[in-house]
Write a protein that binds this DNA or RNA. Structure first.
Length: 546
RNA sequence: GCCAGCGUAGCUCAACGGUAGAGCACAGCUUUUGUAAAGCUGGGGUUGUGGGUUCGAAUCCCUCCGCUGGCUCCA
């Protein structure tokens, strides 16, 4: 009999009763054999399995049990001394979970709940969750008209609306500028490629379950939607002879890739089936590797800090020693893992090492952040790869006039533009800084009498490359302000008779309110500075309301 | 893919076996307005899809599609 969320109130009531009864909880330690017998008798096959595993894997001879009334449970503990010590709790949701996290095992029902020392803390916690949900990028994306996921096109395939597209373009321009400065070269490659290309790379058939099915075009000629850009970029590397003199070669592309994520995994912009990576592949010599990885890590850091995503963690993904899913030699892996460690240490990044989190061709540094309900997602990534150069037989001529094998770095500071913007929407709660805001200034004429001047103001703003719109609706000024407040525009220029006469605008800043009346040319200069500083300099930052 | 829940107008939601409704948005008219919602009128729905039960289904049952929260997966 499956448990659903509807059953939770009844379970809570029952729990409350047990709390009130103040049942003592008693710890006992039994030899594994006896405990096994007990649970076998109770028909608790999973507990029996646990005990067997504890004995086998951890060599324990006895296990701890907790007894509460006539209920007895296998648990490492510790437990409260009695059930009366439980204070404020609430059951939240139910979910299926595979036994021991293995999808080949049966699915059990898991009940999620939370507990606090008092009712007030519990209520506050629930309110915080509710508040956080209002930042959800799926809700804000709809409200603000940023993107759309249409079932007619397909699940997990976002369509970017004009306003969302502006955010993408701004991010791309910013990054492109930065990469040109750092010596990257941009390329453009097709969205499909022959299956054989991915056989060589090792993606196929290893990732076949995660690929859109191959398209057979001519007899024996099958193509795949590309799940990665690297094989394409490798072909560009191979298109000309390379020497140590023109390495590192840094090939960048905003490359759109397609991965057939499981249907239950899809989630707004954050987990999709088609997305655009701010991808690049760096081909370098062993001597150049550390410096290149370091500048990639610095770039990823800089990107996150610019948008104020300071609450991130760094993970080093290493291979799982017990798994055979990896390609390449042990020596190369050791080398690559060591390179990566050196860089994070040098940059003094706070990091954790996690075996089993590597890509199949190499270890990686991931930059991980959280969404509005606390789920962790990978944004930027840097991967050191000795293996694809081998699989594709990449070479360069060294100073000794002999061929050598380059090392590849796969890196994407934002990761996926789609996911990154999803996280950004939640981070800013839809209130984007001036440089990213789809509409930067709303020009609000008080009445039709100032409509003509409004058009003039609009022209000046647009000449300054500020994204502006005039609200020509017949509404009263209060209604217009409300509408654009809900649109979360950073600035409103309110213009009535007084402003028309003096060539001024009354400036209203998001979150602050009215900041005063200024010459049009003067405000535009201030806004240009704020926009070009990407948020580090803010006009009217210390202005009082009123 | 798996477990549970959900799917009603463009949006947010109501109706929960007896003729499908509200607010916002939209259109028209009146108002020409000074810093978070002017008034009136109007258009808009095969209740996600296909089937079933019933005199009668948005409502109950099944299929599929999609979404949500988890699990698994994540190059």
């Amino acid at each position: 009999m499956p448990i659903s969320a509807d059953d939770l109130p009844r379970i809570e009531q029952e729990m409350q009763k047990i709390v009130e009864e103040k049942i003592p909880i008693e710890r006992l330690e039994l030899p594994a054999e006896q405990a096994k017998e007990k649970f076998t008798r109770l028909g608790q096959k999973y507990k029996v399995e646990m005990i067997d595993d504890l004995v086998k894997n951890e060599g324990v001879s006895s296990v701890s049990l907790y007894k509460q009334g006539d209920f007895i449970d296998l648990c490492r503990g510790p437990h409260l001394p009695d059930t009366g010590k439980v204070r404020a709790f609430r059951l939240l949701t139910t979910a299926g979970a595979y036994w021991r996290g293995d999808e080949n095992n049966p699915m059990l029902t898991r009940i999620y709940g939370t507990a606090f020392f008092d009712e007030k803390q519990l209520t506050e916690h629930i309110e915080r969750i509710e508040e956080a949900k209002k930042r959800d990028h799926r809700i804000l994306g709809k409200q603000l008209g940023l993107f759309l996921i249409s079932n007619a096109v397909g699940p997990g395939l976002p369509l970017w609306l004009p306003k969302g597209t502006i955010i993408r373009i701004e991010l791309q321009n910013w990054l492109q500028e930065e990469l040109f400065k750092q010596g990257y070269q941009f390329v453009f490659t097709p969205h499909i490629g022959k299956v054989d290309l991915y056989r060589t790379s090792g993606h196929y058939p290893y990732y076949e379950h995660g690929l859109f099915p191959a398209m057979e075009v001519e007899q024996g000629q099958a193509y795949l939607l590309k799940p990665m850009n690297c094989p394409h970029h490798i072909q560009i590397y191979l298109s000309a002879p390379r020497t140590y003199r023109n390495l590192p070669l840094r090939l960048a592309e905003f490359g759109t890739v397609y991965r057939l994520e499981q249907s239950g995994e899809l989630s707004g912009l954050i987990r999709v089936r088609g997305f655009t990576q701010d991808d690049a592949h760096i081909f370098c010599t062993p001597e150049q590797l550390l410096e290149e990885v370091e500048s990639c890590a610095n770039l990823a850091k800089m990107v996150l800090e610019t948008v104020g995503l300071n609450d991130y963690r760094v993970r080093i993904g290493l291979r799982d020693p017990d798994s055979s899913k990896y390609t390449g030699s042990t020596e190369n892996w050791d080398l690559a893992e060591d390179n990566i460690r050196q860089v994070v240490r040098k940059l003094q990044l706070d990091y954790t090492e996690e075996p089993g989190e590597a890509a199949f061709y190499g270890p990686k540094i991931d930059f991980i952040t959280k969404d509005c309900i606390g789920r962790e997602w990978q944004l930027g990534t840097i991967q050191v790869d000795y293996n694809l150069p081998e699989r594709f037989n990449l070479e360069y001529i060294g100073p000794d006039n002999a061929p050598h094998r380059p090392i590849m770095i796969h890196r994407a500071p934002l990761g996926s533009l789609d996911r990154f913007i999803g996280i950004l929407i939640e981070h800013y709660a839809g209130a984007f800084p001036l440089w990213l805001a789809p509409v930067q200034v709303a020009v609000l004429p008080v009445s039709e009498k100032s409509a003509e001047y409004a058009q003039k103001v609009l022209k000046h703003l647009r000449d300054a490359k500020l994204r502006a719109e005039v609200d020509t609706s017949p509404d009263k000024i209060g209604a217009k302000i409300r509408r654009w407040t809900m649109e979360k525009v950073p600035y409103m220029f309110i213009i009535g008779r007084r402003e028309v006469v003096n060539e001024t605008v009354s400036v209203r800043k998001r979150k602050i309110g009215q900041v005063g009346t200024f010459q049009l040319t003067e405000v535009i200069e201030l806004l240009k500075i704020e926009r070009d500083s990407r948020g580090s300099k803010e006009a009217f930052a210390d202005a009082a309301g009123g």
